[in-house]
Write a protein that binds this DNA or RNA. Sequence first.
DNA 1: AATGAATGAGGCTTCATTCAT
DNA 2: GATGAATGAAGCCTCATTCAT
Lengths: 188, 188, 188, 188
Amino acid sequence: MPAQPTGRFQPPDVRRRQILDAVAALLLQDGYEALTISKVAARAGVAKGTVYLYFDSKQELLAALQAEMWGRMLEAPAALLERPELSWGDRLDGLVAAWVSAEQDHQELYHRLFHELGTAGDEPMGEARALLVRILTEGHEAGEFDVSDPELTADFLTHAYAGPCHHASGADVTAAVQGLFRRVVAAR
Amino acid sequence: MPAQPTGRFQPPDVRRRQILDAVAALLLQDGYEALTISKVAARAGVAKGTVYLYFDSKQELLAALQAEMWGRMLEAPAALLERPELSWGDRLDGLVAAWVSAEQDHQELYHRLFHELGTAGDEPMGEARALLVRILTEGHEAGEFDVSDPELTADFLTHAYAGPCHHASGADVTAAVQGLFRRVVAAR
Amino acid sequence: MPAQPTGRFQPPDVRRRQILDAVAALLLQDGYEALTISKVAARAGVAKGTVYLYFDSKQELLAALQAEMWGRMLEAPAALLERPELSWGDRLDGLVAAWVSAEQDHQELYHRLFHELGTAGDEPMGEARALLVRILTEGHEAGEFDVSDPELTADFLTHAYAGPCHHASGADVTAAVQGLFRRVVAAR
Amino acid sequence: MPAQPTGRFQPPDVRRRQILDAVAALLLQDGYEALTISKVAARAGVAKGTVYLYFDSKQELLAALQAEMWGRMLEAPAALLERPELSWGDRLDGLVAAWVSAEQDHQELYHRLFHELGTAGDEPMGEARALLVRILTEGHEAGEFDVSDPELTADFLTHAYAGPCHHASGADVTAAVQGLFRRVVAAR
DNA sequence: AATGAATGAGGCTTCATTCAT
DNA sequence: GATGAATGAAGCCTCATTCAT
């Protein structure tokens, strides 16, 4: 798979993007173990040394990609909190929709990224969890949900949603997962 | 970390155990990436070559550990299917108890093992899933559960239970997760 | 034995040559069994990894050296076939001269290389043999030689010429071997 | 290929033979590079340690096999020197017959053994050469041969005879090689 | 005499990272 | 800013040899 035929000189953001895209593509294609800087450079159409102009190490390169992905998972649901007209159930649905969609977009990309999370990887996951905890807590306080232990339930749901994304035969996974989330938090 | 002070010659099962235990300990302690045969040997108190007397390759060593863990997760719940006096809810509770306990025993050991599953790792996971699918399906047919899509729900739950096992502050995680499972499958 | 004091960066051909020369030197000095990539690198004055920049594996490194040597043995004699003014005896003499000279240059280098020929090594040997078979056959048909079984005779001579190259005390080995070849093919 | 079903205790010579036979068989089958003491032991039907009861090292094991083979190549031709009724040509024929037969028996066994000859291997080769030198010299002095440089000619012939043994399509290789030897030494 | 589990040095190869151009 | 040849530490695995039983 040859490099994209871009010019030799590129604006920094473009180069950065090319490299991150290359990492994502390779991760999806061959998995984490097979990922090498050489391949990333080749795929991005740059020299090996160039990768190090944009990222200090392999670790940081992966961390950057991970951070990007977490961002996509957090923005949309967080925005829903600002809209007063929504019910907590709506917000939970929105969060599920965002997460399922992110998961499906990157398929297992994010799971493959879990390898190197030992260090910095925990923090963004914490943010996602915190968001869910907040929805559960406030939804419960509003009488809309029945969640006795929001933290534990958030851990449960945080792991759960990913399951159906992979195996499921297309169909409406989002709706199905939303239904399951609703069952877990349902009042009564 | 010095080797366990065992004699030079050991019965084969003992050596095998020592080595597998060393792998588990190191995996928990330092993670998958940091696992080397050298460290395994040192931790097990044997020479590097000895590891290869018992396992043909690093792959097989990890596969053996994984197989062992899946066995522990499948035996007890499968046995519950044979006991006619139990309700489907009881069986589901039993499965949760076994899985949570296995998860807590090995903490993230099993998750760290997910790296090398590309090959043989899928099969046992399939068995665990199949077991859960069966419980959900038959519980639904018996009118005890309300599960419209057993496959998808199994994928959901298969991922979900692990979440609370790690973060949760001790307490009665098992009971809590059993409760969440019940909510997901609850009739009405 | 310290590395040759060459600069750190070298044109690709130069580096390639340095490495091949190092292999040849070590092979002559210590034999095939003792040949390691480490020693090759040290002798060539490069890091171990550099060897793999130029050759994909130890096998290929040896194959490259072997191919080079076969080339030297085949080019000159093959050229003689194109010159109509030569008798078949002249051509046979030319072939002997080339082979003896190649053999003496590399002494037993080529014999030590015979270890790894299992794969690609047979082919070039076949070419050398084919060349000789052709000379014997056509020389016989021209009435200049008397060779009843060219194939068998070629096998005989292909092995024979190497013998005197090593032991012989300098002198004129080439002339002597030419004389022996002439005896083997002599008409009458 | 399972071990020969011999009893656990064997007279020393039998064991020794079993081990040497195993080496020869493996050498022929898989080549020198693939030869390990483990395989030798397995093939001979003994434990690895047992091999070391009979041979001090791998080197010595191979040397012993080589010595045996040289013996077979030297005994018969040397005996011919004692029989006054024979011509030198007959003796040369006898030597060729013995060498070709030995070569064919072990096919390339002896060539595969040439790898480790660096040390002790030269000596027996020297004996074979000396025998041939003597035949050439005395045959020449007797006016039966015309050999101007017996040493060089011996080196030539010592290498030559092996060529036809492998490729040749059965037939009467011995006679053919005898004919070629005769041509090389022919008076006139 | 025989065993075979255990050893550990050492080989091949990979790959993150550097740096002279 | 970009390059890519060069580096060398470190990993996996093999196998001749030893030694307690």
